[in-house]
């Protein structure tokens, strides 16, 4: 189990733990179907500590790097 920030671009992983993510961000992620157990793919990252773009079921979501750091995933 690693933090999402450990993934390489293009790598797929399963979300294991969202409990460390701030409430508001977690609510939004749930709204978009990014839940524990969901399979995601890291699409790209922005430079200088910028946001991450992840894909889940054909749906892309942008989140900040420090939130991604709090998401525990299991690489597939």
């Amino acid at each position: 189990m690693v933090a999402m920030t450990q993934l390489r671009v293009g790598e797929r992983a399963k979300i294991v733990d969202l409990s460390q993510v701030s409430d508001l961000v977690k609510r939004r992620l749930l709204d978009m179907g990014v839940t524990e157990g969901a399979e995601i793919c890291l699409k790209c990252t922005m430079p200088l500590g910028g946001p991450f773009m992840i894909e889940n079921c054909g749906q892309c979501v942008g989140i900040r790097r420090h939130e991604a750091m709090n998401i525990q995933v299991k690489p597939l």
Partner: peptide, 9 residues
């Protein structure tokens, strides 16, 4: 704290 989650259609 600033919050950012955005859907990319």
């Amino acid at each position: 704290t600033s919050v950012f989650v955005v859907e990319l259609p």
